[in-house]
């Protein structure tokens, strides 16, 4: 998969935020991070809250600019690219949804094609296609407004919006966090299939280690702004980093506890 040159590459990227307080308020949200993502790769990013995952994603489509280091997309340093065009070429699913409350679902999904000047009829067809894809009934949802949807439905619209302009690269910030396990599982594997079918390159932030291991080709582990591990599941398990070990062990431990609880209740 990584026989070609990387599609996205971070090289010694640093991003600090001024916490506002005069003293000691400086947060190194991303601290000297370097990694490559090959075209067609599905990368999951995991790590504790505040470890810099979202910041990493925002850097990739120039919602913010790094303090140091370079980021390239398709070999080009993005510092020299028009950010508007860059963002229209990259799909982005926001952690908080970020749907426009004054636009109906169809308008929300079709926003980037509209900005690109795609004909209306083409946008409408694309919107329907995407609603199918994220398992929302076309007729029922097209004309509704975001506040008329459940949290999970909104997240699915967010995913559809990110895909609307047929991007090659999709950045997803906890796209399935508010979904029930059944839908989440289904949507996750549907997306994985789509990713493969369309030849997408996906970076997905998740808190769910099982999801990360099941969907992604490789998993990146962030900790306090640093990228402490990056690799496929087996590669990660060979590392002797206690934090990574704990993270990796979580799904199995949960499964075992669950098993125990279930068999106990059967015995009773």
């Amino acid at each position: 998969m990584s026989e070609t040159s990387p599609l996205v590459a971070f090289s010694h990227v640093v991003k600090s935020f001024n916490g506002g307080r005069a003293r000691g308020g400086n947060v190194r949200a991303v601290d000297d991070v370097s990694f490559d993502i090959a075209a067609g790769e599905f990368l999951a990013v995991v790590g504790g809250s505040g470890s810099g995952k979202t910041t990493l994603l925002r850097l990739a489509n120039r919602l913010i600019d790094p303090d140091a280091g370079t980021i390239t997309v398709a070999g080009e340093d993005i510092a020299g690219i028009d950010p508007i065009g860059l963002r229209r070429r990259i799909g982005y699913v926001f952690q908080s949804g970020g749907l426009f409350p004054h636009m109906n679902i169809a308008a929300n999904i079709g926003i980037t094609p509209r900005l690109l000047g795609t004909p209306k009829s083409e946008i409408a067809a694309r919107v329907d296609e995407l609603l199918d894809l994220v398992q929302l009934d076309r007729a029922q949802h097209r004309d509704r407004f975001p506040h008329e949807l459940s949290g999970g439905q909104r997240q699915r619209v967010g995913v559809a919006r990110a895909l609307a302009a047929k991007p090659r690269i999709v950045l997803m910030d906890e796209p399935f966090g508010a979904l029930d396990p059944v839908t989440r599982d289904a949507l996750g594997s549907d997306y994985r299939a789509l990713h493969a079918r369309l030849g997408l390159t996906t970076v997905m932030i998740t808190h769910d280690m099982t999801e990360a291991l099941l969907l992604a080709d490789r998993v990146a582990v962030m900790h306090e702004g640093r990228l402490i591990a990056l690799g496929a599941a087996d590669e990660l398990s060979r590392l002797d980093n206690p934090y990574v070990g704990e993270l990796l062990g979580t799904p199995r431990r949960q499964a075992e506890r669950l098993q125990a609880t279930l068999s106990q209740s059967i015995r009773l």
Binding site: L63, I84, R88, F94, S96, G98, F100, I111, T112, A165
Partner: peptide
């Protein structure tokens, strides 16, 4: 979050 979403969508 909405102005950021607007920028993210390419506005």
């Amino acid at each position: 979050a909405l102005t950021e979403a607007a920028r993210g969508a390419g506005m």
